[in-house]
Simulated assay, not measured.
Amino acid sequence: MEFSNLSDFKGATASSLGKGPYAVLIAEDRVEFESSLNHLISLGFRAILIVAPDELPVPDEPPSSEIKQHVIRHPSRQPGATEEVVNALIEKVPGQWIHYCYNGEYLFFPFCEDRTVGELVTWVMEERREAVLTYVIDLYAGDLTAHPNAVDLDGALLDSSGYYADTRKGGVEGDEVMERQLNFYGGLRWRFEEHVAKPKRKIDRTGLFQAKPGLRLREDHTLTDEEMNTYACPWHHSLTASICSFRVAKALRTNPGSRHDISDFRWHKSTQFHWSSMQLMELGLMEPGQWF
């Protein structure tokens, strides 16, 4: 189903969208759009909403009749576009799980090679959790001469260390320490922070969550229910996930303000990415919690 604009989507019935879990793929350009779409399909999402401008072509049909694919024609690079679309979906499908990502991004959760996202969210609900905190892990090409936009699936690198967290504060006065919430940093946003606006330097994103009435996604990738932004529940460690992403590397190599200052993303802590959930867990970039 294709919606000619966001207003048309808002007018659609929830039943026409199919059943969840839902994935929202925000297509900012064509770079690795199809690989990101195929990755979502492989994880077991039952309904995928593609947000794309009019000029960006998208596949007509999903590869399986069991998967619902919808296209929302909307300027995906417009400020606030992500929140507009995700919040519109939240209103339609209370109780369903939603993941959102951009082209060139790939969700990994513990043991995702053998378990579906449906199995994951079922287990998370049994743990009395309504959200999975995700860390956006930067991927980048090792050879920028061969891959000037820094995107290379076969030779993708990531930082094996250099990640850290600090206290998150909020509340009415902005000085209240938020319980079980931290701001996480690392990757290219940390190493090249002079080229990244301060509000964009965090790598944490509440990237998989259960919709409910009144819930809203905010510009900083957090939700208005503060408990859903926590990295763990009060009684034990919670499962977390990673979104492996070329988005920052691509931006640093294409934006006029940074592309001439960066000739190589590699450093002594770069390592080959094996597209493996086990590798991400071994590097401490996500946590299985009690899910064995």
Rank of each mutant, 00 (worst) to 15 (best):
P62H: 08
H195A: 07
D261N: 05
R168N: 02
L223W: 05
E84N: 07
L153P: 02
S4C: 11
K68L: 12
E55S: 12
E84T: 04
L158E: 02
N38W: 13
S270C: 08
D264G: 03
I41H: 08
L6R: 02
S76K: 01
S160Q: 11
K202F: 00
Q290A: 13
F45H: 07
M228E: 07
P213D: 14
A27V: 06
L49W: 00
K19H: 14
V86F: 02
E32P: 01
S64D: 15
I48Q: 04
L158Y: 05
F45E: 08
L239K: 03
E194S: 10
I67W: 12
F111H: 09
G11W: 06
I50C: 09
H195Q: 09
F45R: 05
V71L: 11
S42Q: 06
I90Y: 07
I48N: 05
F33D: 02
K68R: 14
V196L: 05
G171N: 08
G214F: 06
Q96N: 10
A150D: 11
G155K: 02
E61H: 13
H70T: 06
D114S: 12
R201N: 02
G11M: 11
C101S: 10
T230M: 15
D204Q: 15
D220A: 11
M278V: 14
Q78L: 10
G170R: 04
V132L: 10
A249R: 14
A12G: 10
S270M: 07
L25K: 04
I48R: 03
